[in-house]
Simulated assay, not measured.
Amino acid sequence: MISRLPMALLLALSVAPAALAEAPKPAAIVADGLPAVPDDLVAATQPYLQTRRATFLGWNAADQS
């Protein structure tokens, strides 16, 4: 059975260079010598990056309905 890390590396290495695009990087991050991020990977991770905060405001023990 192949573990996830070697499988992910194999998948990443098998992506054709023509399918690679330049994903936008924040201005505060400097990345020299890194390969371009595939469009498929950018699209697949977008749902995980769309988050929002939730704050616990309180709980009333008498109001348990």
Rank of each mutant, 00 (worst) to 15 (best):
M7I: 12
W59E: 08
G33H: 03
L10G: 13
L10Q: 11
A12D: 14
R53W: 11
A16T: 10
L49R: 08
F56D: 05
Q50E: 08
A18P: 00
L20E: 09
A23C: 00
I2V: 12
D40C: 13
R53Y: 08
N60K: 12
P35I: 02
L9S: 13
T45R: 06
P35D: 02
P26C: 02
L57N: 08
G33V: 04
P6F: 01
R53P: 05
P35N: 01
Q46W: 03
Q50N: 12
P24C: 03
A21G: 15
A23L: 00
L5F: 09
S3W: 03
N60I: 10
N60F: 03
P26T: 02
A54P: 00
P38A: 06
S14R: 10
L49N: 05
S14E: 07
L11V: 06
V30A: 13
T51H: 01
V30S: 14
R4D: 14
L41W: 13
A43C: 09
V15N: 02
N60Q: 10
L9G: 13
D32I: 08
D63L: 12
P38W: 01
A23I: 00
Y48F: 14
A62Y: 05
K25G: 01
I2A: 15
T45G: 07
A31R: 04
G33F: 06
A54L: 11
A31C: 02
A23V: 01
P17E: 06
A44M: 10
V37R: 02
S14L: 14
S3I: 01
A18H: 08
